[in-house]
Amino acid sequence: MVLEKLDFSEARKGFIEITPLAVGVGFYGLAFGLLAAQAGLSSLEVGFMGTFVFAGSAQIVAVERLMAGAGAAAAIIAGLALNLRLLLITASVSNVFSQRPLWQLVLGLHLTTDENWAMMLARQKRGGASGYWYLVGGGLALLLIWLVSTVAGVVVATSIPSPKALGLDFAFTAAFIAIARSLWRGPKDLLPWLCVVSVVVLGLYSGALSETWVLIIAALAGTTVAGVRR
């Protein structure tokens, strides 16, 4: 099957085009490495965690909980709560992985993160290929920078400028704004998207739910509106 072959040029495109986002990820990696070193993690533990968990915000929260003495179970649950959005992410692109050998399914799913997922969607919208190798190429670039920057953060473990001081925390917001623009499918998206924004605003100001649940409920509310309308 042709699909199963490695499409090197797609993978390379994915690897290169994610660079602006990878720079932002690198700064978070340094910050995470610093936190992990303070929590007593070794370079080996941080490298292993980055490679096999590969979910930045969940790693940060889990290590923070561990450092707070909350215990292993609480640390895992806190990290998993943040990762629930990955359920929606892989569900939304499940066709990209269908009819692939098991190793490609496992590799692709593991390498799927917010950043390369969003980049792949934008590429598909521009009429690019199926997207699997683009996704994997972007995922490998992110894994590499995450690994290098987190371990560097542990080793250096001194004064690293905080991402926020440099405005880099906004890098992801700006990137997702550009990607949302390319995902706009026309007027039929208006009502679902307005619904999403309204639920986020209401959810945050009510203060009744954590950010993760606000995010998931808002996305589901918007997609339900889109599903009901013909």
Partner: peptide
Amino acid sequence: GFWARFLSALPGCLIVALVALFTVK
């Protein structure tokens, strides 16, 4: 039907939710 429209709207809605969360908070 419903689930096809639901799934095809999911990427955009999730991205918009992320952006809204980052900016509003």
